[in-house]
Lab assay of single mutants.
Amino acid sequence: SKDAAQYVYDEAQKGVTQVTVNGVTFKFDNWQKLLKYAQKLLN
C-alpha cells in the first residue's frame, strides 16, 4: 500500500537499514538501498 511505502520511505530517511511492515521485516546492507526500495514502492 502507499501508506506502507511512505512509512518505509520515512524510515529510510532516518538512516535505518531495516524496517518492519505488516509483520514483515526487510533488511538492507545500507539505508540507501532501503531508500531505493521505498522509492520503487512509491512509484
Rank of each mutant, 00 (worst) to 15 (best):
T20R: 11
T17K: 02
G15V: 11
A5E: 08
Y9T: 13
Q32P: 04
Q32G: 06
K14V: 12
Q39Y: 13
T20M: 07
W31M: 05
D10N: 08
N22R: 11
L41G: 00
K33Q: 06
K33C: 13
L35I: 03
V21R: 01
F26D: 02
V21L: 03
D10I: 15
S1Y: 10
G23H: 07
T17V: 11
T25W: 10
D3W: 09
T25Y: 08
G23E: 06
Y9F: 12
Q18L: 13
Y7N: 12
K27D: 10
D29I: 15
F28D: 01
F28Q: 01
S1A: 09
K27H: 10
T20H: 10
N30M: 10
E11T: 13
Q6P: 02
V8A: 06
N43T: 03
Q32L: 12
K40N: 03
W31Y: 04
F26V: 02
Q18Y: 09
A5V: 05
V19I: 12
S1E: 12
N30G: 09
Y37S: 01
L41R: 01
F28R: 01
T17R: 03
Y37P: 00
V21Q: 05
V8Q: 12
L42E: 00
N22V: 15
T17N: 06
W31F: 05
A38Y: 04
V8Y: 12
N30Y: 08
L42Q: 01
L42D: 00
T20S: 10
T25D: 04
N30V: 10
K2P: 05
V19S: 03
V16C: 15
N22G: 09
N22Y: 15
S1Q: 08
Y7F: 11
K36H: 04
L41E: 00
Q18W: 13
K33M: 08
K27F: 15
Q32I: 09
G23K: 06
T25I: 11
Y7M: 14
N22H: 12
Q39D: 01
K2E: 07
V16P: 11
Y7L: 14
Q18F: 13
V19L: 13
E11A: 04
D3E: 03
A38P: 00
A38N: 00
G15D: 05
D3Q: 07
Y9L: 12
D29Y: 14
A12H: 06
G15I: 14
N43C: 15
K36W: 10
V24M: 11
T17Q: 06
Y7D: 14
V24H: 03
G23P: 01
K2G: 10
D10C: 15
G23Q: 04
Y9C: 15
Y9D: 14
A5P: 15
N43Y: 06
T17G: 07
N22L: 13
K33T: 07
A38K: 01
Y37W: 08
N22A: 14
F28T: 02
L42A: 01
D3T: 03
N43A: 07
K27Y: 13
Q32W: 12
A4Q: 07
A4S: 06
K14I: 13
Y37M: 09
W31E: 00
Y7W: 13
Y7I: 14
T20V: 14
Q32T: 05
L41P: 00
S1F: 12
Y37D: 01
V16L: 09
Q18A: 07
K27S: 14
D29S: 14
D3V: 04
S1W: 14
K40V: 02
Y7V: 13
Q13R: 08
T17A: 08
V8W: 13
V19Q: 07
E11G: 06
N43R: 12
K2F: 12
L42S: 01
L35Q: 01
V24G: 01
N22Q: 09
N22S: 12
A38V: 12
K36S: 06
A5Q: 06
S1C: 15
K40E: 03
L34K: 00
T20N: 03
Q39L: 10
V8K: 09
A12T: 08
L34I: 02
G23V: 14
G23D: 06
V24N: 09
L34R: 00
S1I: 12
L42R: 01
K36Y: 07
A4E: 09
L42V: 01
A4Y: 10
K2I: 08
F28P: 01
Y7G: 14
Q6V: 10
Q39I: 06
D29K: 10
G15K: 09
A4W: 12
S1D: 10
K33R: 09
V19A: 05
K40R: 06
W31T: 00
V24E: 02
T25N: 04
V21Y: 02
W31S: 00
V19K: 02
F28Y: 04
